[in-house]
Write a protein that binds this DNA or RNA. Structure first.
Length: 296
DNA sequence: TTCCAGGGGTAGA
DNA sequence: TCTACCCATGGA
């Protein structure tokens, strides 16, 4: 079964989805020989399917094809859900023309960003908050391990896949799992508490994370709302704002400091403030400008 | 052993 | 608003 979606041009699908490390976090994956994103996805009705998402350039736009495996037929509701999720994951709703025209003032940057900017995100904001918390104060290798264990231990399995592959667990599945399995098997370290607490808040209806996806709150207020989540500080809030399409502020982490130090410091020691000042001219696009400044 | 990685919470000033 | 200290985990 195939679901087709039209994406605007310019759109470099293969580069865009791999520009974000999320492609390496379960249940996402990259199929190199097909230039396709794969993802095990649990639908709202509880069924679990495998999505294989690829793109094809045609004259006026880009055609996204999502192949759905693991079910013999799809209801209209299921098709609509998959369409909406793919649309959100690929950020097909965002407008980047202002960003591209702004980049024209820096030829090196302009050459790099062509058709890029639509960084991969997860279908639910809950998943992206959990993943972001698992990037804090740890290495990327460990983040991948934490998310792989979380998905493998708590997510619903894809029917008849061998070895078993799993969807990202729902807030209820995480909340119901309890602390013990986090300590013995999933091992997020002190983030165990944050993940469980968030899952409980969401599953009990005390926190509506998905509503933030369509929020038109000003940047500062949205940031304030995100920082109310236990485990989310400035770095995580700016990362999550990027995921929501707000690029006003850079997420300062060891990676940012190391890149700016290498490229601009010339042996001097720079404070975070000094480093951020290097990007101050880029208005509401600072995060993306830094992102592509630091990427190849 | 010690350090620290794509930081954040908390207490105290 | 700023600083010092603590935090689980695992690789270097």
């Amino acid at each position: 079964m195939n679901i087709e979606i039209v994406a605007p041009k310019p759109y470099d699908f293969a580069a865009s989805v791999r520009d974000h490390g999320w492609i390496a976090l379960a249940p996402f994956g990259w199929i190199a020989d097909q230039n396709a994103v794969q993802r095990v996805e649990r639908l709202n009705d509880g069924s679990v399917v495998l999505l294989i998402i690829a793109a094809q350039e045609i004259p006026d736009h880009v055609r996204i094809a999502a192949q759905v495996e693991g079910t013999s037929r799809l209801s209209a509701t299921q098709r609509r859900e998959i369409e909406q999720k793919v649309h959100w994951m690929l950020k097909l709703d965002e407008e980047f023309s202002e960003f591209y025209s702004l980049c024209a003032r820096d030829p090196e940057l302009a050459a790099k960003v062509k058709g890029r900017g639509r960084l991969l995100r997860s279908p639910t904001f809950f998943e992206d908050v959990i993943k972001t918390i698992c990037t804090c104060n740890t290495t990327w290798t460990q983040t991948k391990g934490m998310i792989a264990r979380l998905v493998e231990r708590l997510g619903d399995p894809l029917p008849s896949s061998d070895p078993a592959r799993h969807a990202f667990p729902t807030p209820v599945q995480i909340a119901d799992a309890g602390e013990k399995i986090f300590e013995t098997d999933i091992r997020l370290g002190y983030r165990n508490t944050y993940a469980l607490r968030l899952a409980r808040e969401v599953s009990e209806g005390q926190r509506n994370l998905e509503a933030l996806k369509s929020s038109d709150l000003p940047f500062k207020e949205l940031k304030k709302a995100l920082k109310q989540i236990m485990g989310v500080g400035d770095y995580a809030a700016h990362t999550l704002l990027m995921i929501l399409g707000r690029y006003d502020e850079i997420a300062v982490d060891s990676e940012f400091r190391s890149f700016v130090g290498r490229k601009y410091a010339n042996g001097k020691t720079l404070t975070d403030k000094d480093m951020l000042a290097l990007y101050s001219d880029w208005g509401r696009w600072k995060y993306l400008v830094y992102w592509f400044d630091s990427s190849s």
